Amino acid sequence: MNIFILLSIIMLMPLCLAQDISVEKLLAYNQWSSQHQRVYLNENEKLFRQMVFFENLSKIQEHNSDPNNTYSIHLNQFSDMTKEEFAEKILMKQDLVDHLMKGISQEATHNDVNKEIQLNSKSLTLAASIDWRTKGAVTSVKYQGICGSCWSFSAAGLMESFNFIQNKALVNFSEQQLVDCVNPANGYSSQGCNGGWPAQCLDYASKVGITTLEKYYYIGVQQNCNVTGTNNGFKPKQWIYIRNTSNDLQSALNFSPVSVLVDASNWHNYRSGIFNGCDQSHIKLNHAVLAVGYDQQGNWIIKNSWSAHWGENGYMRLAPNNTCGILSSNLQVTA
Results as ranks from 00 to 15, higher is better:
residue 216 Y to N: 14
residue 250 Q to I: 10
residue 163 N to G: 09
residue 148 G to A: 04
residue 263 D to W: 03
residue 39 V to L: 06
residue 122 K to E: 13
residue 139 T to M: 11
residue 328 S to F: 01
residue 79 S to N: 04
residue 285 L to I: 09
residue 40 Y to A: 02
residue 203 D to A: 08
residue 260 V to Y: 03
residue 295 D to A: 08
residue 225 C to V: 12
residue 189 S to W: 00
residue 6 L to C: 11
residue 144 Q to L: 05
residue 252 A to E: 07
residue 245 T to R: 06
residue 70 T to M: 11
residue 107 E to A: 15
residue 267 W to R: 12
residue 247 N to A: 14
residue 293 G to L: 08
residue 34 S to I: 01
residue 259 S to D: 04
residue 256 S to E: 06
residue 185 A to Q: 11
residue 18 A to D: 01
residue 144 Q to Y: 00
residue 232 N to F: 08
residue 202 L to P: 13
residue 119 L to W: 05
residue 137 A to I: 06
residue 330 N to V: 03
residue 89 K to E: 06
residue 213 L to T: 07
residue 248 D to P: 01
residue 58 S to Y: 04
residue 172 N to C: 11
residue 223 Q to E: 09
residue 129 S to Q: 14
residue 28 A to F: 06
residue 246 S to N: 07
residue 244 N to S: 13
residue 119 L to S: 11
residue 34 S to W: 00
residue 121 S to M: 14
residue 194 N to V: 05
residue 5 I to K: 07
residue 204 Y to W: 14
residue 168 K to L: 07
residue 332 Q to K: 00
residue 24 E to G: 08
residue 93 K to T: 09
residue 70 T to A: 13
residue 210 I to T: 09
residue 171 V to K: 13
residue 18 A to N: 08
residue 328 S to Y: 01
residue 232 N to G: 12
residue 206 S to G: 15
residue 307 S to R: 03
residue 9 I to C: 10
residue 132 W to N: 11
residue 172 N to P: 08
residue 313 N to Q: 11
residue 97 V to W: 03
residue 118 Q to T: 04
residue 2 N to T: 04
residue 14 P to S: 02
residue 145 G to V: 05
residue 142 K to D: 01
residue 237 K to P: 05
residue 279 D to L: 12
residue 241 Y to A: 14
residue 234 F to A: 14
residue 45 E to D: 05
residue 121 S to Y: 00
residue 2 N to S: 12
residue 284 K to D: 15
residue 23 V to P: 02
residue 183 N to Q: 13
